[in-house]
Design a protein around this nucleic acid. Sequence first.
DNA 1: CTCTCGATTAACCAAGTGGTTAATTGACGT
DNA 2: ACGTCAATTAACCACTTGGTTAATCGAGAG
Lengths: 127, 127
Amino acid sequence: MANTQDTLSITFAALADPTRRAILTRLARGDATVGELGEPFEISAPAISKHLRVLEGAGLIEREVDARWRICRLRAEPMHDAHDWLEAYRRHWEESLDRLVEFVEQTHRADAKKRGNGAPRVPRKKP
Amino acid sequence: MANTQDTLSITFAALADPTRRAILTRLARGDATVGELGEPFEISAPAISKHLRVLEGAGLIEREVDARWRICRLRAEPMHDAHDWLEAYRRHWEESLDRLVEFVEQTHRADAKKRGNGAPRVPRKKP
DNA sequence: CTCTCGATTAACCAAGTGGTTAATTGACGT
DNA sequence: ACGTCAATTAACCACTTGGTTAATCGAGAG
């Protein structure tokens, strides 16, 4: 409902569609026309047009008109902000990974020392 | 319309709302009850409940029931995948940054040589 | 038992989204 | 001038989303 959407929200929303992400992935390999971009998908040209408008609205692509073709080019800057935002949570997912590694190592050590002990313990959710 | 949404789409969609991002930011400082999470916002309790269900559906939080409170905890793992996906585009935004730096340096050099030239030029979108 | 409190569910609404087909625009080739 | 081709716009549809208010549920307190 917050209609005056902030940039980050618009960026994440644009990225929340697999077709649009595929388009961006394609554009990372080089500029392309709208037709080329739509070719891999089984959806109509207007549907592609709409996706491109969303991407353009998010500043993730820009279009340059060349005769009757529109050349699309990737503009990755907004991803930078999204990446930075996520970066702030890195230690949280690394902590979870640490807990998993710790669990695996403990299990391995237990197996090596005395095989066939009790039930395999599961990492506590909040240790 | 792809209804069987992939994980990345669900993650990005969950992050595409400022209220939900604020909730995650709050949870990064520690677990909290639903009431505590909703307190900063001027929306109803059911609206918060829905946001939390979206976050839970994306695997970004988990809820533990404690008497009549629900304790919410951050689960940052899905952000890891989103972060990785964006990482693939790093060189693109860094290239753009390079172009900007190059422009600034050029401008600076020009200013140093002949001061007080025309209006301050703005970086071209496609130099 | 009853009342309150934290939280969720139910039912509804307005707006947005992702898709369609049909019509339109604009540049090119003949 | 005409037809064609790339792309967009228009109009429509089904479904989702973010919000509301009212009702419900479950655990404690009196």
